[in-house]
Design a protein around this nucleic acid. Structure first.
Ligand code: FES
Ligand code: FES
Lengths: 144, 144
DNA sequence: TAATATACTACTAATATCGTAGGAATTGGG
DNA sequence: CCCAATTCCTACGATATTAGTAGTATATTA
């Protein structure tokens, strides 16, 4: 149950874009440098995020990436699902027919519980929330 | 974030032992047949569970495995940890020094939240709970 | 001693992860 | 028009992990 770098990098890249909203396109090169990720690898991740409709790209000079939707409309769960795949994949939670006695199986119930707990957290957080959290972290003056 | 068969099989094997408490040792062969797992593979899993102190083994004829502790004293979280490794491993949640700006990083905060959610579920369930659930599933007469 | 179990070690096929590499296509600016 | 910057696309490879298989040694009971 370890997260892939794909997911971790992808979400951090999305966060960079969320923080850059309103300032035009952000280049791979910049994101990669700020987040310490290989440009070429990030390149591939952005392709995934693009085809999933989370980001838009502007080609050519002065191009880059922007979020396709407002940061408050993108839940972490969506992006997670896109990069990491369905949360906690145990075949039988998705497909009743996978195991013979799925209806009674308590193990399956447990994995469903875990799955729902993870999804609840990720669904409750948007990228705007993360941007706000970052601001709070960076300006402790505003805290009591 | 997909569970390994190691974890899934291991927990199901532990559940078999929990259901067998008080009836002497249970053989690999039996567990493997009931849970549809390769005997030899299960063999290795039991070695892990044994060295972690969750089960005891009785060698030789009429031997087998028993739980090392009472089912109500073994939390799912313990066994999970032993088989799957630390819940949601993102290095920086464990090791502050892994990422440079770990203190401020909101991504890290998210993974910590997810981690805690999973652990909360797994820590709230013991093998005795699972045994009870199984009974309820198998005798719906007792339900209102 | 024979049958039944666990214990231990080694090997393997398949798959996924985490990149690296190179070049094609597109765009903006001089 | 040309150049630099940038995304787009495809292929490759090294490494690690997973999910077993296989064979043999050791212990126990009857
Ligand atoms: S239903 Fe799939 S493990 Fe029980
Ligand atoms: S601290 Fe590790 S990803 Fe931010």
């Amino acid at each position: 149950m370890r997260l892939s770098t794909r997911t971790r990098y992808g979400i951090r890249a999305m966060l960079e874009l969320a923080e850059n909203v309103g300032r035009g396109p952000l280049q791979l090169r910049i994101i990669a440098r700020r987040q310490d990720i290989s440009v070429k690898y990030l390149d591939q991740l952005m392709t995934i995020l693009k085809s999933a409709g989370f980001v838009r790209s502007i080609r050519g000079s002065k191009g880059g990436y922007v979020l396709a939707r407002a940061p408050e409309q993108i839940k972490l769960n969506d992006v997670f699902n896109c990069l990491e795949g369905p949360v906690v994949t145990v075949e039988c939670t998705e497909n009743e027919n996978y195991c013979a006695r799925a209806a009674d199986c308590v193990a399956r119930q447990v994995w469903t519980q875990v799955q729902e707990a993870v999804m609840a957290v990720l669904q409750s957080i948007t990228f705007q929330d993360l941007v706000d959290r970052t601001k709070n972290n960076k300006s402790p003056d505003y805290q009591i």
